[in-house]
Design a protein around this nucleic acid. Structure first.
Length: 468
RNA sequence: GCCCGCGUAGCUCAAUUGGCAGAGCAGGGGACUCUUAAUCCCAAGGUUCUCGGUUCGAUUCCGGGCGCGGGCACCA
């Protein structure tokens, strides 16, 4: 034993000693391959409902979770990607050496096993072992079998342990995957083309946020990690890809809290010959298929609050909401600021907030009947922005003026003003068809549909500081 | 960046109004051939996050630091 091993906690030291004993006995503790015939769930489905039913033989493989030994007979729970199944080992069947080897196994070990299916006297469907094989020796003890892993810092830093120890955490991420898959299917079946655009950008446009900066050595230039997908996707619509979408990571160099992580996943979709009214319908469809994928019901509970996701969603003008809440008649940035502070947190049920001031919407088309406002909406649920959409600004002359206004704001000290993008203007000058665009923060959508209070609970590896 | 709270065994948690830090689980030894958080017996396991201060004595009180959580600011 090395000095390092002597310093280990006893549970880890004992496992390393076991490993050495196994190797000394000629056992390979890390198998190259193992072919199973059935998952745990498939094996269980082979067994009929009657108490005396039998099935198999089956070859299963997974992680040993808990072991109970009663003399010449031992029980263990095996967990694989499909679920759990009990293993039964008997000295009389396996023979002394194999049985002793089974008793040496630790919770956490990955094993493969062959046996027939039958229930125990207590009715537990089980694989009655004829043989088994160690596939990967686990050198660290699993968290407590009853309470699981609670410490949130360890859960986030060592998500692999969290996923093993806490099945409900696994379910959140399975649901996340199903939600995103369902959204893809919806868009694909509506003739949207999934595309990929640059993550490293020279002009970080499409939103208002502080970007992360990096250096491209060969070009001797600073590049930025994208803060949005918007401008590249609209370039593609100029090019004739009339319906495009991208699901991708964006990066914002800002604070961390329950609803913000510096990298997060955004869906953006652009549809030529559509306006923001059409995009409201698309948004309702996206939220409907997402909720169906997450559990079926459009009436969900978020942190104890009933939320009704059945379309159509309420439409409300921002200026009306502010007047109702405060009695004030505001316009421009003041209106948007007041709305965000006083009104938005109180909007609980799905609401399309419409008619944003042009000052806070440099990429959106003005309303024809009132050019102080744009054809834009945000979808607000439980007081949070879940989607942002507008009829796109297609007029290159107006767009140039808007960029110039933004540059002036930047020079006045507003760091998050939209940067000037000459190439984007060149694209608009070739002609962008009338287009509606949508952005959805998928992490917040997953939070809503899986009832998770923090964005960290829907990100596999949330941002944390350096381990202390 | 600011304010508040928390940090004890591999895991889940106790306790110390400043005086030898203690359980369960996991791990070790033993009994047990139908267990389900198996049960029973025995032994082991600690830099009480870290650095300093006060004190005869600090895990406890005070201060700095680190990390995590919550709130604020930022996220138009």
């Amino acid at each position: 034993m090395t000095e390092l091993e002597q310093d280990l906690p006893s549970a880890q030291r004992d496992r390393r000693e076991k490993l050495e004993r196994l190797q000394a006995a000629g056992v390979e503790p890390y198998a190259a391959h193992f072919h199973r015939t059935h998952t745990a769930a498939e094996a269980l489905s082979l067994l009929g409902p009657e108490p005396e039913a039998e099935g198999g033989p089956v070859t299963v493989a997974g992680r040993l979770m808990v072991k109970r030994v009663t003399g010449g007979m031992a029980f263990a729970r095996l967990r694989d990607g499909s679920g759990d199944i009990q293993l039964v080992a008997q000295r009389d069947v396996l023979g002394e050496p194999q049985y002793e080897a089974f008793l040496e196994l630790d919770p956490g070990d990955l094993i493969g096993a062959v046996g027939r299916l039958r229930r125990t006297r207590r009715g537990e469907p089980s694989v009655w072992l004829e043989s088994f094989q160690l596939l990967s020796k686990s050198l660290r003890p699993l968290p407590e079998k009853w309470h699981g892993l609670r410490d949130v810092e360890t859960r986030y830093r060592q998500r692999y342990v969290d996923l093993v120890a806490n099945p409900e955490v696994r379910n959140v991420f399975v649901t996340r995957s199903r939600i995103i898959s369902a959204i893809r299917s919806l868009l694909d079946s509506n003739e949207f083309l999934e595309v990929e655009t640059p993550v490293l950008q020279e002009v970080p446009g499409g939103g208002h946020a502080r970007p992360f900066v990096t250096q491209y050595n060969v070009l001797h230039r600073d590049f930025y990690l994208r803060i949005a997908l918007e401008l590249y996707l609209k370039r593609l619509v100029v090019g004739g890809l009339e319906r495009v979408y991208e699901i991708g990571r964006v990066f914002r160099n800002e604070g961390l809290d329950r609803t913000h992580n510096p990298e997060f996943t955004m869906l953006e979709a652009y549809q030529a010959f559509a306006d923001y009214q059409d995009i409201m319908t698309l948004t309702e469809d996206i939220f409907r298929v997402a909720a169906e994928a997450a559990g079926g019901s459009l009436e969900v509970t978020y942190q104890g609050e009933k939320i009704d996701l059945r379309p159509p969603y309420r439409r409300a003008r921002m200026a009306d909401l502010v007047r109702e809440a405060t009695g004030q008649e505001l316009a421009g940035k003041e209106l948007a600021d007041c709305y965000e502070e006083k009104v938005e947190p109180g909007i609980r049920q799905p609401t399309f907030v419409i008619d944003y001031p042009v000052e806070v919407s440099p990429l959106a088309r003005r309303r024809s009947d009132d050019p102080r406002f744009v054809e834009r909406f945000e979808l607000v649920i439980v007081g949070r922005e879940h989607a942002n959409a507008f009829t796109e600004l297609t007029d290159p002359i107006d767009q140039r003026r808007r960029f110039e206004t933004q540059v002036a704001e930047r020079e006045a000290g507003f760091e998050e003003a939209h940067p000037f993008d000459e190439d984007y203007l060149r694209a608009l000058e070739y002609g962008l068809p009338p287009t509606g665009g949508l952005g959805v923060g998928l992490d917040r959508l997953v939070m809503l549909l899986t009832d998770q209070p923090s964005i960290r609970d829907v990100l596999l590896f949330p941002q944390l500081k350096e381990e202390g």
